[in-house]
Design a protein around this nucleic acid. Structure first.
Lengths: 345, 345
DNA sequence: TAAATTTACTTAAACGTTTGAGGGAAAGAA
DNA sequence: TTCTTTCCCTCAAACGTTTAAGTAAATTTA
C-alpha cells in the first residue's frame, strides 16, 4: 500500500521532494507548468498522501474517537449516523470504541488517546463510571472532549443532551394521570447523570401530584445478562408489584414485555409501560410502546460539529454548557388513556 | 497531547533516544538496571508511544476499516460488536465508514485506503455497487479485504456469509406449505449477491413445488426514502396482491407491517410475512415476525479474525472461499401453521 | 550597467519511532 | 601482553510529509 510517495514522484519528474509537496498543495512558489506536470502524474499514478506522515508532521490526525457503551441500541446507532455524517463532510475519520459498560475498558481506551491518536473525543460514559480521573487526565492535557447523552458533569466541557428531567417528569405525570398508583423506574446506574435526571423528573412529578410514596426504582445492569430479566420478573411477581413502569433504556422495555408475556400480565391493563427508545418497530409491538424518543441523529450531529469546531478553531473553546435538544413523548398503546385530567396539587 | 516522547525521556535520563526505545521494547542490548530506570520513568510520566510515528516506521497501522452501508440495522450493529470484540483482543483499532448504499461514497472511502491508513478492510458492499473496479484496485495492491454478508464474488478473497440460498428456499417453502399462492420477494438490489442468492433460493423452492408462476419480486431501495413504503402499499393494493412476502432486509419487514396496518390487511390471514432480522423486538410485534435470523455477531467475529490473521501472518493468505455460518429460521405468528405437509414434487 | 527584486526551485531539518551498524570499555582467553 | 568476546550503549538513517531558509538565474528597477 501507499507505494506511490512524494519521493517517487520526485524521482520520476526530476524534481526535489519539496517541489512535489508544494506543487501538490498549489504553492505559489512553483511554476504553473511544473504544478501541472506534478498534479497530472499524481493523478495518473493515484497518489494518496500518507496520513501518518502528515499526522506526524502536523500533530493532527484528522481523526476523532467515538467512545460508547454499546452499539446495539437504536439511540447509539442513530447517533453514530449523525456523527459520521458530520465527520465525512469535514473530512474526519471516526475510530469506534465500545466500553460494554465497563469502566476498566473505558480507562484503557482513554489511556491510549494520550498518544495523540485522535484530535478529539465524543463520548457517552459507561454505566459503571463513577470516577472521572481517566477522563480528567486527558482533558487537562487539552484533549477536546464533547459528551453526549451520557454526560459527565465533572468535566468542564460542552455536553449535548436531551431534556432528561422533563422526560422523566412527563412520563411519570402521564402514568399518574392514567391512574397508576405505584410507579417503578428501571435504572441502569446510580452514577449516570442521565438516569438520575430522569429519575429525579419522575420523583418531582410524584411529589407534585402528592404521591411521593408511590415512587420506587429498581437498579439493574446494562451488561449482557440474564439477571435483569429475572429481576424484572420477580418485581412483577410481587404482590405489591407496580402498575406503571418507566424503563430508562431500550432493552429494558423489551424485557418488561417479555416478562409480562411470561407472567400473563396484560399491558396496559395490569401494567402500564413507558420506555426510552428510538426503534421504529416499537410502534408495532403489541401493544405499541409509549416512548420518549430522543433526537439521536441530531444529538450525534451537534456533538460532532461542536467537537470539530473546537479542534479546528483555536479561538473557539469548549465552554462548560449543556446543549439540550428536546425529546418527543409519543403516547401509544402501552399506556392507558387519561380518564380524568389531573393537575399538580 | 503526547508531549512525553522518547526524546524527552532520553533527556531526562541522560541516555540516547535509541537506548530508550530499546529499553521500552525490552531489548537484550540494554542492561536490566537501565531498563528499569526507563520503564519506571515511562510509567510515571504516562508515556504512550505515538502511533503515527510507529506506523510510519513499521508501515503498519494496527488499524482496520469497517465499511458498511448503514449502522441502524440490527444485523450490522451486531456485526460491529463481533468485529470490535476481536479487534480489541488483538489490539487493533477500528475505523468506521458508512456508504449509505452509495457506490460513489464507497469509491471515495476506498480510494483513501490507498494511503496505507489501514492494514485491512472488512466490508459489506452497498446495494448500488455493481462495478468492482475500486475494490479490485485496492485488492490488487495487496490490501487484505474480507467481505461479510454483502460479499463481492468478483474479488478472490475470503467471504463470510450465511446460507442465503437455503434461507430463501426455506422461507419460500414454508410459505408454500402454509398455503400461499402468490409469493413476492422484496429485494433491495439487482446486483447484490446476498439478495440474488436469497431470491434464487425462493425460486428454486417454487420450482420444486411446481409453482414457478407463483413467484414475483419487487425491487426497492435501501436508501432512506418514503418511496419504498408507497411501492409496498401499491403492491398490496393491487387486486393480484401477493399472499406471502419475503422481505430481504429488516426495514422492509417493518414497512410491510405499517402498510398492512394502513390498508387494513391482516397478517397472517391476508398476507403472510417472513423477514430477515436480528432485532429481538420482532418477537413482540403483533403478530410476531417469522424471521431468518443471521448469526451477526459470529459473522463479524469470524470476518475480523480472518482478516487480522491475514494481516499478521505472512504465510497465511486470504483464500478465495466462502465461510458459511447458517442462519436460524424462526417461525412465529406472521406466518400460518402448516396445514398439510407438502413435499417437493 | 549595476543593484534590487522576483521566480522557481533545492537543501535540510523536523515530526517520533525503530533498528542496523558501530564503538568503547571491561572481562575473559591465548 | 595482546587478542577476542561480550556488554551496553550511541550514531545515524529511515518511514513520508511539510516548511523555513537558502540559492541561482531571470527579470525589473534605477
Amino acid at each position: 500500500m501507499g507505494n506511490v510517495t512524494i519521493k517517487f514522484l520526485a524521482k520520476e519528474l526530476n524534481l526535489s521532494i519539496a517541489a512535489i509537496s508544494k506543487a501538490l498543495r498549489d504553492s505559489h512558489e512553483i511554476s504553473p507548468a511544473t504544478k501541472k506536470r506534478v498534479q497530472d502524474l499524481a493523478k495518473q499514478l493515484n497518489y494518496v498522501p500518507n496520513p501518518y506522515a502528515s499526522s506526524l508532521r502536523h500533530r493532527k490526525s484528522k481523526t476523532i474517537a467515538v467512545v460508547l457503551p454499546e452499539v446495539a441500541d437504536s439511540f447509539f446507532s442513530e447517533a453514530i449516523n449523525g456523527i459520521e455524517a458530520v465527520a465525512i463532510k469535514k473530512d474526519y475519520h471516526v475510530l469506534l470504541y465500545l466500553t460494554h459498560e465497563s469502566i476498566a475498558r473505558e480507562e484503557a481506551i482513554l489511556k491510549d488517546f494520550q498518544s495523540g491518536r485522535v484530535d478529539g473525543i465524543l463520548m457517552s460514559i459507561s454505566a459503571e463510571t463513577n470516577c472521572y480521573q481517566h477522563i480528567h487526565s486527558l482533558f487537562s492535557k487539552d484533549m477536546p472532549i464533547v459528551f453526549f447523552d451520557r454526560i459527565c458533569n465533572e468535566i468542564k466541557t460542552t455536553k449535548v443532551i436531551t431534556d432528561d428531567f422533563d422526560c422523566g417528569y412527563n412520563a411519570a405525570a402521564h402514568l399518574i394521570k392514567t391512574g397508576c398508583q405505584k410507579i417503578n423506574f428501571l435504572s441502569i446506574s446510580e452514577s449516570l447523570g442521565i438516569t438520575t435526571m430522569r429519575k429525579m423528573g419522575c420523583m418531582k412529578a410524584c411529589q407534585d401530584f402528592n404521591m411521593e410514596n408511590a415512587f420506587q426504582s429498581l437498579l439493574l445492569s446494562n451488561k449482557e445478562t440474564e439477571s435483569n430479566y429475572s429481576m424484572i420478573k420477580s418485581l412483577l411477581k410481587k404482590k405489591s408489584r407496580p402498575d406503571g413502569i418507566i424503563a430508562s433504556v431500550e432493552k429494558l422495555s423489551l424485557d418488561v414485555y417479555f416478562a409480562c408475556r411470561e407472567l400473563g400480565l396484560s399491558i396496559p391493563d395490569d401494567l402500564q409501560l413507558i420506555g426510552f427508545s428510538n426503534l421504529s418497530s416499537v410502534s408495532l409491538l403489541a401493544p405499541a410502546l409509549t416512548t420518549i424518543t430522543q433526537p439521536a441523529f441530531e444529538i450525534g450531529e451537534t456533538a460532532a460539529s461542536t467537537l470539530i469546531k473546537a479542534i479546528e478553531k483555536k479561538s473557539f473553546v469548549l465552554v462548560d454548557e449543556h446543549i439540550t435538544i428536546p425529546s418527543k413523548f409519543i403516547i401509544r398503546g402501552s399506556t392507558k388513556s387519561i380518564v380524568q385530567e389531573k393537575s399538580p396539587d
